[in-house]
Amino acid sequence: HNLTITQGKLFFHYNPKLCLSEIHKMEEVSGTKGRQERNDIALKTNGDQASCENELLKFSYIRTSFDKILLRWEPYWPPDFRDLLGFMLFYKEAPYQNVTEFDGQDACGSNSWTVVDIDPPLRSNDPKSQNHPGWLMRGLKPWTQYAIFVKTLVTFSDERRTYGAKSDIIYVQTDATNPSVPLDPISVSNSSSQIILKWKPPSDPNGNITHYLVFWERQAEDSELFELDYCLKGLKLPSRTWSPPFESEDSQKHNQSEYEDSAGECCSCPKTDSQILKELEESSFRKTFEDYLHNVVFVPRKTSSGTGAEDPRPSRKRRSLGDVGNVTVAVPTVAAFPNTSSTSVPTSPEEHRPFEKVVNKESLVISGLRHFTGYRIELQACNQDTPEERCSVAAYVSARTMPEAKADDIVGPVTHEIFENNVVHLMWQEPKEPNGLIVLYEVSYRRYGDEELHLCVSRKHFALERGCRLRGLSPGNYSVRIRATSLAGNGSWTEPTYFYVTDYLDVPSNIA
């Protein structure tokens, strides 16, 4: 807008934040220059609390790290170098490059900038070799853009010569660093050979998330399962459950009422301010606690030095998902009996873990797994792929695949051998790939016309006998059925096997 004052003059007093240069501009645009008398524009009460600059400061050096910015700028000295009290560095987070010096300023003089007072450097006698002032900004957020400017702080001049310097606002972004852990990993099994893994992005990506790394490792069953005799009275049979499938998407929606109208769909109840505040506090606490764990609990591995020492970490090797089922080394339970199943799973520490690289999504279907087997899954978020990966501390989750139908069934015939004193040795093959492992066998036998009897055969007993022995049988026709019990439950009964026990007292003698 054009402003013209045809008559009258300007009068400025007691404006401590208004620089004289701005008042002189007002004289020019209003056409009143030359009308004012000496005392109409006070030299001592206008701009006496402001830094009124008329020179431009330029930054000469900028260096960044993930949490620091090192700045240096060209030296500046007023005509009387004693008038320079120091520099004021202003900075704040700036997602967009549209910041002005006066953003967030209120009537009390406060604003949204963080201000650092910096002492002037030592003055050199040689004007050509003056030290460049600077400042190291610490405690910054990774991968965050900051708006920065600097200006001088000078003393009051009796001659009211307006001098000083100020830089333009520059924008500097800190470097990326390792992201925080992925949030809320959930693993479920939808079949006997697959596990579905879902997660949420890290709360602090500290860069642009480029991919996720998912490692999985087959877990050995508890050692007590191999040692305890679950045929003993009072000892509860062990059981394991597989990871249940995901709930429906509708039930997972946030901010939804727990109660549904019987007449149909209901609208979600909005969260109160107290609920939102509580969630923010919980989120802040979780982030602080995660940072504490990362800094205190997890110790970084030592990389190899120039002395030739090897990095103890196993090298990563990509495998196809079809090879995942046989990740671990199978060892027989008892070496003397080769027909026992290889369900003991000690994992070799030198073995390469299978892994998958996930790009542009937060889910993965891990296939080719062994049925009813526990897996430990390790999830890392990465925001750099080359020249070397920059990934987060791992988040861990466990899951067990679903049982395989008929995996616990005894394959092959049940054979028998009759000894003296009416002892019958029953023999059968253990299931080759049971659900988890076989903890015991149930032997059901009966003599024709009598009630059915049951015998429990422990895992250890089966390994020693290759089956079991029935003792003290009365003469007669017998039928026997056997079924295995694994961590997933009972298998199917075998087809009945028949044998006849004679009275050993009636056996004919070869003595003449």
Rank of each mutant, 00 (worst) to 15 (best):
Asp204Val: 11
Pro205Trp: 07
Asn206Leu: 14
Asn206Lys: 05
Gly207Lys: 03
Asn208Met: 07
Asn208Ser: 08
His211Lys: 06
His211Thr: 04
His211Glu: 02
His211Cys: 01
Leu213Ser: 13
Val214Trp: 00
Phe215Tyr: 09
Phe215Arg: 13
Glu217His: 14
Glu217Phe: 03
Arg218Ile: 10
Arg218Val: 03
Gln219Pro: 04
Gln219Met: 06
Gln219His: 03
Ala220Ile: 09
Glu221Arg: 03
Asp222Ser: 10
Asp222Pro: 06
Asp222Thr: 06
Ser223Met: 14
Glu224Ala: 09
Phe226Cys: 08
Phe226Thr: 10
Glu227Ile: 12
Leu228Arg: 10
Leu228Trp: 15
Asp229His: 06
Tyr230His: 02
Tyr230Trp: 06
Tyr230Met: 05
Leu232Thr: 12
Leu232Lys: 05
Lys233Met: 12
Leu235Val: 09
Leu235Ile: 06
Leu237Cys: 13
Arg240Ile: 07
Thr241Glu: 02
Trp242Glu: 09
Trp242Pro: 07
Ser243Glu: 04
Pro244Phe: 09
Pro244Val: 07
Pro245Gly: 12
Phe246Asp: 07
Glu247Gln: 13
Ser248Ile: 12
Ser248Pro: 08
Ser248Gln: 15
Asp250Phe: 13
Ser251Val: 09
Ser251Lys: 13
Gln252Phe: 14
Lys253Pro: 07
His254Ile: 12
Gln256Ser: 06
Gln256Leu: 12
Ser257Glu: 15
Ser257Arg: 07
Tyr259His: 05
Glu260Gly: 03
Glu260Pro: 10
Asp261Thr: 07
Ser262Asn: 11
Ser262Lys: 05
Ala263His: 07
Gly264Cys: 02
Gly264Phe: 02
Cys266Lys: 14
Cys269Ala: 09
Pro270Tyr: 09
Pro270Ile: 12
Lys271Ala: 13
Asp273Lys: 09
Ser274Pro: 11
Ser274Arg: 11
Gln275Ala: 12
Leu277Ile: 11
Lys278Glu: 04
Glu279Ala: 06
Leu280Phe: 10
Glu281Val: 07
Glu282Asp: 15
Glu282Lys: 04
Glu282Val: 08
Ser283Arg: 09
Phe285Ala: 14
Arg286Met: 07
Lys287Leu: 07
Lys287His: 12
Lys287Ser: 07
Lys287Cys: 09
Thr288Leu: 12
Thr288Phe: 03
Asp291Lys: 06
Asp291Glu: 14
Asp291Ser: 07
Leu293Cys: 04
His294Leu: 08
Val296Gly: 12
Val297Arg: 12
Phe298Thr: 09
Phe298Asn: 15
Phe298Ala: 15
Arg301Thr: 14
Arg301Asn: 02
Lys302Gly: 01
Lys302Phe: 12
Lys302Pro: 12
Lys302His: 14
Thr303Phe: 08
Thr303Met: 09
Thr303Ala: 08
Ser304Leu: 10
Ser304Lys: 15
Ser304Phe: 15
Ser304Met: 15
Ser305Asn: 12
Gly306Val: 12
Thr307Ala: 06
Thr307Glu: 14
Gly308Phe: 04
Ala309Thr: 05
Glu310His: 12
Asp311Tyr: 09
Asp311Thr: 14
Pro312Asp: 14
Pro312Tyr: 13
Pro312Gly: 14
Arg313Leu: 08
Arg313His: 01
Pro314Lys: 13
Ser315Ile: 12
Ser315Val: 12
Arg316Gln: 04
Lys317Val: 13
Lys317Thr: 10
Lys317Phe: 14
Arg318Phe: 13
Arg319His: 07
Ser320Cys: 09
Ser320His: 11
Ser320Leu: 10
Leu321Met: 11
Leu321Ser: 10
Gly322Lys: 05
Gly322Val: 04
Asp323Thr: 14
Gly325Gln: 15
Gly325His: 09
Gly325Arg: 04
Gly325Thr: 13
Val327His: 06
Val327Leu: 11
Ala330Met: 13
Ala330Asp: 02
Val331Asn: 09
Val331His: 15
Val331Ser: 14
Pro332Met: 10
Ala335Glu: 13
Ala335Ile: 14
Ala336Leu: 11
Ala336Gln: 05
Phe337Pro: 14
Phe337Ile: 07
Phe337Leu: 11
Asn339Asp: 12
Thr340Tyr: 13
Ser341Ala: 04
Ser341Arg: 05
Ser341Asn: 15
Ser342Arg: 14
Ser342Ile: 03
Ser342Pro: 05
Ser342Met: 07
Ser344Thr: 11
Val345Ile: 03
Val345Arg: 09
Val345Met: 09
Pro346Leu: 13
Thr347Ala: 12
Thr347Gln: 08
Thr347Leu: 13
Thr347Glu: 11
Ser348Leu: 12
Pro349Lys: 12
Glu350Gln: 12
Glu351Lys: 14
Glu351Thr: 13
Phe355Asp: 03
Phe355Ser: 10
Glu356Ile: 11
Glu356Asp: 06
Asn360His: 07
Lys361Gln: 07
Ser363Thr: 11
Ser363Asp: 10
Val365Arg: 09
Val365Gln: 13
Val365Ser: 10
Ser367Phe: 05
Ser367Asp: 06
Leu369Pro: 00
Arg370Lys: 14
His371Tyr: 12
Phe372Glu: 03
Thr373His: 10
Gly374Trp: 03
Tyr375Arg: 01
Tyr375Ser: 00
Arg376Phe: 13
Ile377Ala: 05
Ile377Ser: 02
Ile377Trp: 03
Ile377Leu: 13
Glu378Thr: 13
Leu379Gln: 01
Leu379Lys: 00
Leu379Phe: 10
Leu379Gly: 00
Leu379Val: 06
Leu379Tyr: 04
Gln380Met: 05
Ala381Asp: 01
Cys382Arg: 00
Asp385Phe: 11
Thr386Arg: 14
Arg390Lys: 15
Cys391Ala: 02
Cys391Gln: 02
Ser392Gly: 01
Val393Met: 13
Ala395Thr: 06
Tyr396Lys: 14
Ala399Asn: 06
Arg400Cys: 09
Arg400Gly: 06
Arg400Leu: 04
Thr401Leu: 03
Thr401Met: 01
Met402Ser: 15
Met402Val: 13
Met402Tyr: 12
Pro403Tyr: 10
Glu404Leu: 05
Ala405Val: 10
Ala405Arg: 13
Lys406Arg: 05
Lys406Phe: 10
Asp408Gly: 01
Asp409Ile: 10
Ile410Ser: 08
Val411Cys: 08
Gly412Arg: 11
Gly412Phe: 07
Pro413Ile: 02
Val414Arg: 01
Val414Ile: 14
Val414Trp: 01
Thr415Gln: 13
Glu420Gly: 04
Asn421Arg: 13
Asn421Met: 12
Asn421Val: 10
Asn421Ser: 11
Asn421Cys: 02
Asn422Pro: 01
Val424Lys: 01
Val424Tyr: 06
Met427Ser: 11
Gln429Thr: 06
Glu433Thr: 14
Pro434Trp: 01
Asn435Phe: 00
Asn435Lys: 00
Leu437Tyr: 13
Leu437His: 03
Leu437Val: 04
Leu437Lys: 11
Ile438Met: 04
Val439Lys: 14
Leu440Ser: 07
Tyr441Pro: 00
Tyr441Ala: 00
Val443Phe: 01
Tyr445Lys: 01
Arg446Ser: 02
Arg446His: 14
Arg447Val: 05
Arg447Gly: 06
Tyr448Asp: 15
Glu452Gln: 08
His454Asn: 05
Leu455Ser: 10
Cys456Ala: 02
Cys456Pro: 03
Cys456Thr: 02
Val457Phe: 06
Val457Tyr: 04
Val457Met: 11
Ser458Val: 05
Arg459Tyr: 09
Lys460Asn: 15
Lys460Gln: 07
Ala463Tyr: 06
Ala463Val: 10
Leu464Arg: 09
Leu464Gly: 11
Glu465Val: 14
Gly467Tyr: 05
Leu470Asp: 01
Arg471Gln: 15
Arg471Ser: 08
Gly472Asp: 12
Gly472Leu: 08
Ser474Ile: 11
Ser474Pro: 07
Ser474Trp: 08
Pro475Arg: 07
Pro475Ser: 08
Pro475Leu: 04
Asn477Trp: 04
Tyr478Val: 01
Ser479Asn: 02
Val480Arg: 01
Val480Thr: 12
Val480Lys: 00
Arg481Asn: 05
Arg481Lys: 13
Ile482Met: 02
Ile482Val: 13
Arg483His: 03
Arg483Glu: 01
Ala484Thr: 07
Leu487Pro: 06
Leu487Thr: 07
Leu487Tyr: 12
Gly489His: 13
Asn490His: 01
Asn490Tyr: 15
Gly491Leu: 01
Ser492Pro: 06
Ser492His: 14
Trp493Glu: 02
Pro496Gln: 04
Thr497Arg: 12
Tyr498Ala: 13
Tyr498Pro: 03
Tyr498Lys: 12
Tyr498His: 12
Phe499Cys: 03
Tyr500Pro: 03
Val501Lys: 03
Val501Leu: 07
Tyr504Ala: 08
Tyr504Thr: 15
Leu505Glu: 06
Leu505Cys: 07
Leu505Pro: 12
Asp506Met: 08
